[in-house]
Simulated scan of single mutants.
Amino acid sequence: MRIEIKDQLQRVIRFEDTPKRIVSLVPSQTELLCDLGLEGYIVGVTKFCVHPQHIKTKTTIVGGTKQINTAKIKPLQPDIILCNKEENNKAIVDECEQICNVHISDIFDLEDSYELIRHYGILFQKENKAEEIISEIRKEAKDFKLYIENKPNLKSVYFIWRNPWTVAANSTFINYMMQLNKFENIYKNKKRYPEIELKEENNAELVMLSSEPFPFKASHKKEIKKFYPKAEILLVDGEMFSWYGSRLIKAFRYFKWLREHL
C-alpha cells in the first residue's frame, strides 16, 4: 500500500507500505501514538516521553528532544522518525533523515493539531481512531467555549523558565491556549519565548508558573510575588497548555478546574 503525504512543513514523504517501526522524538506525539493504538509500533522515544508511564520501559531511550543518539536509533531500524519543528532543531532532523523518512509537525492552534492527528491516521492506517480523537477534542473545546464565554479576561503572564526568566509570548501554541482561556498575555507583543528582566508589574492579574520545561515549585511563588504584587500566582500543568495531541481531551476539563480555583 503506497502512501504519500506532506508533513506540516509541506515536505513530501513516501512509503511503499505502512510504517511499522516508529521513533518518536516528541513527548506529546508519543502519547498520541499510544492513544491511536500504536504503542506496539514504537521502538524509540525520548527520556521526556512520560505518558503512558511505562512507555520508556518497553522501548529504547534515544536521547532528549534537543540531543539524540543516532547510534541508538540506527539499530532500531525505524521506518519513520516523528519530529516537531519547535522541539527538534534542524541538525536533529538532518541526522534523522540519514536514517529514514522524517515527519515534522508544526503546531500553532487546534486546526494544526487536528491535521497532525489525521496525518498519523493516514500514515499508520488508523483513520477511524484519529477521527474519533478529533471528535472528542472538538466536543471538549466546544463545551469549554460555552463555559468560558462570560468569564472575565485576565491580564496574564506564563513563565516557562527561571534564570533566565522566560515567558511564552505570541506565535506559540501556549499563547493560543491562553487566548482560549481568556488569559490576555501581557507579552503578546513579543514573539516566541523571550527572556525578560523581572520588574514590578502592577497590571498583571494572573501569573502562571508552568510545570515544564522548568519544574516550578511552590517556593517560586514567593520569589515571583514581589514583582507581581496584585496578581494571583498559580502553579499550572504545562502539559495542558503545550501538549497538542490527545492530551487536549483532558486539557479543557483542566482549564475549567483552573478557572474554578482562581
Rank of each mutant, 00 (worst) to 15 (best):
F255T: 09
T60N: 04
L180T: 09
L209S: 08
E95Q: 15
E197A: 13
V236E: 08
N185E: 05
L123S: 09
G40P: 05
R138L: 08
P213C: 07
V93W: 00
N203M: 14
F159K: 05
V93I: 15
H261M: 09
K182F: 05
W161K: 04
P75K: 02
Q67F: 03
I22F: 10
E136D: 12
A71H: 06
R253A: 14
V157R: 04
L262G: 03
Q29W: 07
Y120V: 00
K226Q: 13
T57R: 15
E205Q: 11
V207C: 11
T46S: 10
V93R: 06
A169E: 09
P27N: 05
N185G: 07
G245V: 08
L110S: 07
S105M: 09
K90P: 08
E197H: 10
K191Y: 12
K74L: 08
F124H: 04
I137T: 04
R253Y: 11
F15S: 11
D7L: 05
L123M: 11
Y120G: 00
K142S: 15
R259F: 14
I134R: 04
H103E: 10
R14V: 12
I92M: 00
D106M: 01
K199D: 10
P152G: 09
W165T: 01
E195V: 11
P52V: 06
W243P: 02
V62R: 00
V93H: 02
E201Y: 13
D237H: 10
Y120S: 00
F241S: 05
L235N: 11
G245I: 07
I224P: 08
T166V: 10
K47E: 13
S219G: 01
L123G: 02
S171D: 13
A218K: 15
K225P: 08
K190L: 15
N150L: 01
F124D: 02
Q179H: 12
N69F: 01
E132L: 12
R162S: 13
Q125F: 01
L76G: 03
T46K: 02
W161R: 07
I117N: 05
L146M: 12
W257N: 14
I99H: 01
S156T: 14
N69S: 07
I13C: 07
V157D: 04
K250E: 14
D94P: 00
I249E: 04
L198P: 07
K20T: 12
D109A: 04
K72C: 01
Y158S: 10
H261V: 08
F144Y: 14
Q179V: 07
E205H: 14
K151C: 13
E39L: 06
R253C: 08
D79K: 03
K151A: 09
K126L: 03
N189R: 11
V12K: 12
D17K: 13
